[in-house]
Design a protein around this nucleic acid. Structure first.
Length: 217
DNA sequence: ACATTAAGTGATT
DNA sequence: AATCACTTAATGT
């Protein structure tokens, strides 16, 4: 498995070298493994056990709060260099996931078994900072998400959503239907259609069937 | 040409 | 902002 280890080390150096100390990288290479997911796959569902933590190398994951099937809300996206610290805490407590993670773009990540990451917290300062930082960042994004629900109007939420989406895709041309947007924002298709038309007329967006181009960013 | 899926719209709550 | 009921447009077979 030397080839695999070499690959992992190379990827780690590429994305996490500035964050992690060398010894920690050595350990990750030892216990971690590389895995890939295709867009649209569900990585983790609500209620499932978490056995590994992902260190995302490329692509993106959409984190969703799901009340029941068909009633869901997108909280935020994870991309390269991110991990899900929420899932990490879940792991320590051996609880089941409270979120659903769906792969947004083809994703590649190094997976680290839960059993070890706890030790790393006390062993490696860089790991501790990484986790705390990640947790903090997720917290901020979640508060933003709550703010969105509480204070922002639907058209503002829509614009933010499209902006975020364009950012993680590294492309302002989004291939998406009104229905999919409505699902992510937990609203109805009709509402999205009307708001999108408004934004289109305001020149903030250019939309055609199955496509939305974000102009105002 | 026909069926299916996506998008647009007026009226109502 | 949501829902209904319907129309129109785009796309696949």
């Amino acid at each position: 498995m030397k080839v695999q280890e070499k690959i992992i080390r190379k990827k780690l150096d590429e994305y996490f070298a500035t964050i992690f100390e060398k010894k920690l990288i050595d350990e990750i290479v030892e216990v971690g493994f590389l895995d890939k997911f295709k867009a649209g796959e569900t990585m983790i569902d609500v209620g499932e056990d978490m056995t590994h933590i992902p260190l995302i190398l490329s692509g993106a994951v959409k984190i969703i709060r799901q009340e029941k099937v068909g009633d869901e809300l997108v909280l935020y996206f994870l991309e390269k260099g991110d991990t899900c610290a929420i899932s990490f805490i879940n792991c320590i407590n051996r609880k089941k996931s409270i979120f659903k993670g769906v792969v947004e773009n083809d994703m590649e990540a190094i997976f680290v078994p839960v059993s070890i990451i706890d030790d790393w917290l006390t062993k490696y300062k860089t790991w501790r900072y990484f986790i705390i930082d990640s947790y903090h960042f997720r917290m901020i994004e979640m508060v933003e998400s709550i703010d969105g629900l509480a204070f922002m109007k639907m058209n503002e939420r829509l614009l933010k959503y499209l902006g975020d989406k364009a950012k993680i895709n590294h492309n302002v041309n989004l291939e998406i239907t009104h229905q999919q947007i409505a699902d992510d924002l937990n609203t109805s298709r009709v509402v999205i259609t009307r708001l999108l038309k408004q934004l289109h007329n305001d020149g903030k967006v250019y939309s055609t069937r199955n496509k939305v181009k974000v102009l105002d960013i």
